[in-house]
Nucleic acid binder design. Sequence first.
DNA 1: ATGAAAGCGCTAACAA
DNA 2: TTGTTAGCGCTTTCAT
Lengths: 339, 339
Amino acid sequence: MKKDVTIKEVAQRAGVSIATVSRAMNDSGPVSSEARQAILKVVSSSGFRLNGIGRQLKTARSHTIGVLVPSLKNPIFADAVTGIEHAAEQSGYRVLLASSRYDTNKEVSAVETFLINRVDGLILTVADEKNSQALQLLGTTKSPFVLMFNPCNQTGYSSVSIDNRLAAFELVSALINRGHRRIAMIVGKLSDSDRSVERSAGYEEALRKNGIKPVGVIEVGFENPDPGTQIAELNRGLRSPTAYFCSTDMLAISTIRALVQSGKKIPDDVSVVGFDGITIGECLIPSLATAVQPAEEMGVWAARHLVARIDKGESVSNLVLPYRIRQGESWGRLTANHL
Amino acid sequence: MKKDVTIKEVAQRAGVSIATVSRAMNDSGPVSSEARQAILKVVSSSGFRLNGIGRQLKTARSHTIGVLVPSLKNPIFADAVTGIEHAAEQSGYRVLLASSRYDTNKEVSAVETFLINRVDGLILTVADEKNSQALQLLGTTKSPFVLMFNPCNQTGYSSVSIDNRLAAFELVSALINRGHRRIAMIVGKLSDSDRSVERSAGYEEALRKNGIKPVGVIEVGFENPDPGTQIAELNRGLRSPTAYFCSTDMLAISTIRALVQSGKKIPDDVSVVGFDGITIGECLIPSLATAVQPAEEMGVWAARHLVARIDKGESVSNLVLPYRIRQGESWGRLTANHL
DNA sequence: ATGAAAGCGCTAACAA
DNA sequence: TTGTTAGCGCTTTCAT
């Protein structure tokens, strides 16, 4: 593992000082054309490349942002990271990526790593904003950060999200308007996600407002969810749900599969709606009814805003983006078919 | 933007030298318990955290690997990155992420960025291994890297992939064995991906071997593919394909949607098979027949191997992992139904 | 067990 | 237009 060429060697071989090389490489000051040519020649023959680490140490700026999401396997986060990465790249920033797998210890250690490596800022989605040690840790630093997806309750930091409770309320109300009364909710571990908590609040509120008692909130695991058994169980019997409200599209997809396998037709026998609006939901057959979060836009906004805070001292800001109800084919009216 | 606490201040306030602080923080040498306690006190009261940049400069090691994939929106890459990230984290490495959007210029600039920031190694998927400027650039450096997904033709670097041609051949042969003769192939821009080129070679080989002439290879865009129109067109008329071989699962999903919308039943009227084996394909209805690439494993292997090369000087290695044919519900026998 | 000191590769202020 | 110089924050010999 031989050492890299350094600015010092280039300077020497080009017969100039390192300051001149630096100026030439960065276009940061006057350089005579003779000097520039001599330097360029050495550079191209030696494969010299300014050492970013040296620069970072000197300038105390890494031009790197730390990004922490629960998982890349849920397209909602992959899309958000896509948005972040593109926006960051456009502003001359790099992305240091970590995923937590919904594990709060990993959240903390990821943030710790980001801090050690002196990222200029962070964008993160934590399990539960209200009880996040990672956020608490961040609070002890002066690193600017943007919370993404998490409902924002406290002030003092930036965030971008949608109104999860309201969207869930609207979705479930729409189900009720279609005649459904026995509406179950499928949710990942509630303790794993404050979004799910908000969504179930919206669900319960919609039922309550219509004088309906909840059929039940079914908790299943998050990664590789297999709600099959629970659903099959719930689904047995005469009083089985006529509609399922799933806390995420990923869960909805599994739910549909489980229902179909147990002989149900969607949406004729039972309606299913999801939440998130992942792109692939549109391609399913039936396509998924859901509340669409503008994930990529959220990522773009988060990155742009963070960069503005870093570069221009812009102040903290909380953005609540509109969601959109996607009228998919996976829900329908309650009919005689439902007994 | 106030400056961080530095090791120098900690040393001063603890009444020791910076060398002792360094030893204490890193457990890298003897430190008396009095010294340690004094240091710990200052550290916790000041929120001191060793500056990774300073360390990187001194040690000439970043413990960072650069990861470049075409897009995170295709779950195949999201899964691979997931594997990389977890394996890297376990070995004490961080991930600097970039995506190319299948743009070779971005491939080059991403690699350039990685090099400037002195990543210890790289893992990448390029559009076309044979004509990659990014790879060429890497060749001029001594940075270890691992190619992922790309078929490996040259030697001199590490890679992990599957045999795309063979898998495609097997898939299309299976279609033929099911009685299909009019088999079309749907592919993203061929110039965008050497995998697609391999896969279409496998497709053509299977047809040739059975004395069948290709119905046609239909090129569509990669991101947000909407092959609807082309397929609708191809699908008109009596001699329309009875089976579609799609170069990726994402394409297959769009294709199924387009076919269903034009009134076809899958697999009764027409069979569709994909390629990649993204998880969600199993949840579709009908579930997707496809060749499964072990994407996450590939990521894990790539990361572990890269780290071994970096840390233990392990030598270059090319791994071809087995693929697996997933017997989905989206294909069937040719019947009278097909005219 | 500890500290002094050198230096990693760079930028930027300053002097020339 | 150029060069000298002083660090940026750290690790790591080498003495003590």
